[in-house]
Design a protein around this nucleic acid. Structure first.
Lengths: 257, 257
DNA sequence: GGAAATCAACTGGTCTGACCAGTGCACTGG
DNA sequence: CCAGTGCACTGGTCAGACCAGTTGATTTCC
């Protein structure tokens, strides 16, 4: 079959920096260079790869922009291996929305899908440990929602940790990473506009309330309800802020089940 | 409130190549540099930005690895602007699975979620045009599944176009891009191992059959059934190829609705 | 005149060598 | 023993050079 199909595939030139980057990326992905370990110095890599320093540097730039390494001037240990994370995902998603290829409504709709599924799976697969962790995070959110020094940042961070805990309970890392990436993209676009200092207290109140309901549904193993809660909360929160012509999208996502 | 929260944020140094890359990326994302347009030559950018060529080149490397531009040696027109696409997403997803941060089972489960939702929304929102386009693509797949010269590549390409048509009918570009990215990541990992030349004919038969059922459900506006079809097909196709300990994940995703 | 070969002016890819501002460690002076 | 001082090294940047490839105009040949 291959004889009919593609006897030969066109050969495209592979730049030197690409091969350098591939070799290093390969080792990182295979786990031979675990997070926290260090790459040799650039001038040492020049020797090992037998290429010029600019080539090595372009390769390192590629790896750095992929979030795989981080380098700091003056560090005698060389670039630090960061391992694979979801940062790259949120970066890519952010570009998609910022370039208006994808609208805010689509982004919210997508978030509805992801968080609903995350909740749904968590309700099915959660362990006792998961439940305890989530309950603890809700307690922490509650303690962070009062007092003058209660930071918005700390509250949001705990909120994110709760979602992460749900994602872990759903036993799908990928789902959690994407949900986080979409969440971040939404935040970057709109969150700062609404939820301003004005009604921040009320918002936290509602947020805690919502999380408690989600936890209850997950604890009860009521998967459809857990999923519905995520969709409803996102709809209630964002429906008024998306472009009017895309509100139908959110409603379509809301009506599931 | 901000006074309590973070009076000052730490200032981290911004490299010259970062600022160059940001300026160019900004213009691309704003649409000032539409896809197909050209960047000035590197030596010209050196003049405009007032930095060295290596700095310009590192910036271009970053943009290139983000899939925003493409450069070709000897091209007197300069680097070509590609615009934003989903390539970066599939790259990131591929890294996540290849590094065993996320298992193949999770990837398939994620794909079940995305394609099911895509089908579901398409069943709700499709227009007559969408239906015609999908029907035409199925016809094309059928014509490509017979004859000695029927290329596997052409068949797969048409298959992808069908999924893209569904995604368009769902009115959510983001969903479609992610589904495509996950699809590609799966293909890169496993597809070549199974679906080998051996039972390729039978596989195409089944594939066309599946697509017809999906189209029928979408045409009928039966959203839950369209979603179920996607999940079932993926489960039937991949369940035997994921790690045994993650099969439960697929089953959890299957049992929805 | 028109087609084919040639050439010159570019391009991006790579290398070399240099300098700078940081960093960490070893040495030194108290 | 500890504080202070250098030195050796790092990554970031620049300048200049060369190469191979592309392009389009020019020239050459039929």
């Amino acid at each position: 079959m291959a004889a009919y199909d593609a006897p030969f595939t066109p050969v495209e030139p592979v730049r030197a920096y690409q091969r350098v980057a591939e070799q290093i990326e390969e080792r990182i992905l295979r786990g031979e260079l675990p997070p926290g370990s260090r790459l040799p110095a650039e001038r040492e890599l020049v020797n090992q790869f037998g290429v010029g320093r600019s080539t090595v540097r372009e390769a390192l730039r590629v790896l750095q922009s992929a979030g795989l390494i981080r380098s700091r001037p003056g560090d005698p240990l060389g670039a630090e291996v960061l391992g694979v994370s979801g940062d790259n995902l949120s970066q890519a998603l952010g570009r998609l929305t910022r370039s208006h290829i994808s609208s805010l409504g689509e982004l919210i709709q997508f978030r509805m899908v992801l968080e609903a599924e995350s909740n749904r799976l968590a309700a099915r697969l959660r362990t006792e440990d998961d439940l305890n962790r989530m309950a603890g995070l809700i307690d922490r959110m509650r303690s962070l929602s009062v007092g003058p020094g209660a930071g918005l940042r700390a509250f949001s961070e705990t909120d994110a940790l709760f979602h992460q805990a749900v994602a872990e309970a759903s036993r799908n890392v990928l789902l959690g990473l994407c949900a986080r990436a979409v969440h971040d993209a939404v935040v970057e676009i709109i969150e700062r506009k609404i939820a301003d200092a004005a009604d921040a207290a009320a918002w936290r109140e509602r947020s805690i309330d919502h999380h408690e309901q989600v936890l209850a549904a997950i604890r009860a193993g009521d998967a459809p309800h857990a999923a519905r809660l995520a969709r409803q909360a996102l709809y209630a929160y964002y429906a008024d802020h998306v472009e009017p012509e895309t509100r139908a999208l959110l409603e379509a996502a809301l009506e599931q089940g």
